[in-house]
Amino acid sequence: MWKKVYDWIEERLGLKALYDNLLDRPEPKGNWWNTLGSASLFLFVIQGLTGIFLTVYYTPSPDHAYDSIQYIMNGVAFGWLIRGIHHWGASLMIIIVFVHMLRVFVTASFKYPRELTWLIGIGLLLLTLGMGFTGYLLPWHQMAYWATTVGTQIAGSVPFLGDFILKALRGGPDLSALTLQRFFAAHIWLLPAALAGLIGVHLYLIIKHGESHYPSRDE
């Protein structure tokens, strides 16, 4: 009976081919440093899941953002845990993505044939920093408000284009409801979509070229 069900599914999904091509692959001998990439992916998924839960209660408006987070922390069952994981996960993700980048640099894994994987990896690093920057404003407390004020000011110091960049980031000359709204949109739609897309390409390239091996003396 189970055999029949399995055969039916297998015939339509082709799980065997998936298994052969994705999972049952040979790899060079690795060590624990090789787990940093998958750890980054895991954190991306965790941040996505906890972030989705948070949007259920969070309100992106200056009048209610702060209070809605107070409610998540004190009123919602396990809200403090979800927010705590999201908060710490953000910091940890930045550390791990950065150390992953250092590992690839030290073992020179970015060289032929993996140049494109590196390029996309840099994109992922910058997008992760962008997620951190946009997410930090959302609690709308003093630390967030003033950190973003200064952060956008720095972006505004670009010669010639500075004023335009500043206004584009803030949605006007000052931090306002528009800033919060567009940081929120960037944080939950724009940047995650870009991240997910680039992660897909990154993974495809890793499967295509395989993980690099640790170089020995003659290389």
Binding site: D24, P26, E27, P28, K29, G210, H213
Partner: peptide, 8 residues
């Protein structure tokens, strides 16, 4: 290296 490596 793959020959003397591990399985994914």
């Amino acid at each position: 290296e793959l020959q003397r490596g591990e399985r994914f």
